[in-house]
Write a protein that binds this DNA or RNA. Structure first.
Lengths: 192, 192
DNA sequence: GTCTATACGCTGATAGAC
DNA sequence: GTCTATCAGCGTATAGAC
C-alpha cells in the first residue's frame, strides 16, 4: 500500500480509538511506518490528514447505511435493518465520535464531513418513514423528521451507554426498545 | 471560595468543554487562579482531580433527574418530563461526554462514576415504566429495561446530532420523536 | 497551603540533505 | 518522496523554599 494510503488508514484507526485531540501526528506516523517528512509531504498538517481520514470514514458509513436501508421491503423493515445492523458498541461510531471532540466541532473544516453525514443519514431515514406513511403502512400520527432523528440518536446514544457500562448490553437494549416502539406504529399491528 | 473548590469547579467546566484528554492541569490551574503547587497539594494529580469533578457532576445530574421523574403523576408524564427538560444540546452532557474519552474509559477509577450514573438513571426510568405497565397505564407489550435504555440513549445521541449540525434542532426532533412513540403506548390513546 | 524551580518527554511543525 | 535534524512550547509532574 502507498504511504499516503497507510497514513490515512492509520489516522482513521487512531481517530476512532482516541479522537482528534487524543491523536498526535507522531502516533499516526508510527502506526503507518512513515517518517515525519513523509507525512508533511503528503498532507499540510494534522487537520488535513484528519479531514481525509474522516471523509473516508463518512463515505464508508453512507455505503453501509445504503445497504441496510435497501435491505427491507417495507419502511419498517428498512428502519429496523438500519437499527439492528451488527455493531461493536464498545468501539462506537467513527463519525459520531468526532462530534464530541472540541477541536473538531470548533473547526469548520473538520466539522463539515460530520455534519454532512448526519444530514444525509437523517434525510434518508426520514424519506423512508414518509414513504411508509404515504403507503398506508405506518400510522400518520408520527413525524418523519422527528422519527428519523430519534432513530439515529438512539444508535449514537447507545454507544455512550455501552461505553459507560463497558458492555454491549445497553446498546442492544436501546435499539430493541426503539424497534419495539416503531413496530407498534405499523397499521398491521394495531396494538402494542 | 476555597482553592480546592475552585479547582474542582474549573475542572468541571473544562472537562465539559474539552473532555479529559483535552484538559491539562495547567489550564485548570489558570482558570482556578491557583498555582501548580496548590493543585498538587489538594489532589494527587490530574486523574484524582478529574474524579472529584466527575463525581460532583454525576451527583448534580442525579439530583436533576430526580426532580424531573417526580414531576409528573403518570409514568408517561414522568418519562416525558425527563425527556423534555430544557437542555443546551450544543454543550452536551457533562457525564455522558466522558464515556467517549479514551483515557476515561480505560481507567477503572475514571469510568466508575460514569457507569454508576447511567446505571442509576436507566434503573430509575425502568422502574417508572414498569410501574406504568402494572398500573394499566401503559401497554404491556414494551420491555421496561429496553424502553429505559432507549430514553436515555435518545438524549445522549441527540447531543451528537446537535453538535454535528451546530444546531439545537436535531436534538429537539429526536426527543419529540421519542415522546410521540411513547405516548402511543398509553392505553388511553389506542391509536398513534 | 502556596510559590518557584527544575525535569523530561511529547506536540506539531519547518528546513534541508539525500 | 523520504529521512534526519532542530525547535519552541506544552503536559504532567516532583522538590523544596517560604
Amino acid at each position: 500500500m502507498e504511504t499516503s494510503e497507510r497514513l490515512i488508514e492509520s489516522a482513521r484507526e487512531l481517530l476512532w480509538e482516541r479522537g482528534y485531540v487524543g491523536t498526535s501526528p507522531k502516533a499516526i506516523q508510527e502506526r503507518a511506518g512513515a517518517g515525519q517528512g513523509s507525512m508533511y509531504h503528503h498532507f499540510r498538517g494534522k487537520p488535513d490528514l484528519a479531514e481525509a481520514a474522516m471523509r473516508r470514514s463518512a463515505a464508508e458509513l453512507r455505503a453501509q447505511a445504503e445497504v441496510q436501508m435497501s435491505t427491507g421491503r417495507t419502511a419498517l423493515e428498512k428502519a429496523t435493518a438500519y437499527l439492528m445492523r451488527e455493531r461493536d458498541a464498545l468501539r462506537g461510531c467513527r463519525v459520531g465520535r468526532m462530534a464530541m471532540d472540541p477541536d473538531v466541532i470548533t473547526s469548520a473544516q473538520l466539522r463539515e464531513p460530520v455534519r454532512e453525514t448526519f444530514d444525509w443519514l437523517t434525510g434518508h431515514l426520514s424519506a423512508v418513514i414518509a414513504e411508509g406513511i404515504d403507503n398506508g403502512e405506518l400510522r400518520p400520527g408520527i413525524d418523519p423528521d422527528d422519527t428519523a432523528a430519534l432513530i439515529v440518536a438512539v444508535v449514537q446514544g447507545g454507544y455512550v451507554l455501552a461505553r459507560a457500562a463497558d458492555s454491549q448490553e445497553p446498546f442492544d437494549r436501546a435499539v430493541r426498545g426503539a424497534v419495539a416502539l416503531l413496530a407498534a406504529q405499523s397499521v398491521t399491528a394495531p396494538e402494542a
